[in-house]
Simulated assay, not measured.
Amino acid sequence: MKSALRERSNMKFTTLYDIEIPVEFRIIRIETVCSYLSISKRVLIQGINNGNFPPPLMINGKAIGWSYFIISHWMNNANINP
């Protein structure tokens, strides 16, 4: 058991900064979405509450974001061109 623990402690891990994530899987934060759509946070949140905008993903306890794929799909269906 001790040898397994010793081997694990010598393992090298790859961070997300070391790999290229395809655009459609990237998470876009609220500031970026608002900037891209040229709307305020208040308008965006109202759209979420009214069901006119896709709900966000919870990134951690406080941060929210959207998948680039979800935003681009929503924009295509809503015929929005930034």
Rank of each mutant, 00 (worst) to 15 (best):
M1E: 00
K2I: 00
S3M: 07
L5K: 04
L5W: 00
R6H: 06
R6K: 12
M11S: 05
K12H: 11
K12R: 14
K12E: 12
F13V: 14
T14C: 07
T15V: 02
T15L: 12
T15N: 13
Y17E: 08
Y17A: 11
E20P: 00
E20K: 13
P22W: 01
V23Y: 13
V23A: 12
E24Y: 10
E24A: 08
R26D: 02
R26Q: 04
R26V: 04
I28L: 13
R29T: 04
E31Q: 13
T32P: 02
V33S: 02
S35D: 09
Y36V: 03
L37H: 11
S38C: 11
I39P: 01
S40C: 05
S40T: 15
K41M: 01
R42C: 11
L44K: 06
L44M: 14
L44R: 07
I45R: 09
Q46T: 15
G47P: 13
G47C: 05
I48S: 04
I48Q: 10
N49M: 07
G51A: 01
G51K: 00
G51W: 08
N52V: 02
N52A: 06
F53P: 08
P54N: 01
P55C: 07
L57H: 02
L57W: 00
M58N: 14
M58Q: 13
N60G: 09
N60W: 09
G61I: 02
A63P: 00
A63H: 12
I64G: 02
Y68G: 02
I71N: 03
H73Y: 10
W74A: 00
W74V: 01
M75T: 07
N76L: 14
N76W: 11
N77P: 03
A78I: 03
N79R: 13
N79K: 15
I80W: 07
N81E: 07
N81P: 00
N81S: 11
P82F: 14
P82D: 09
P82V: 12
P82E: 05
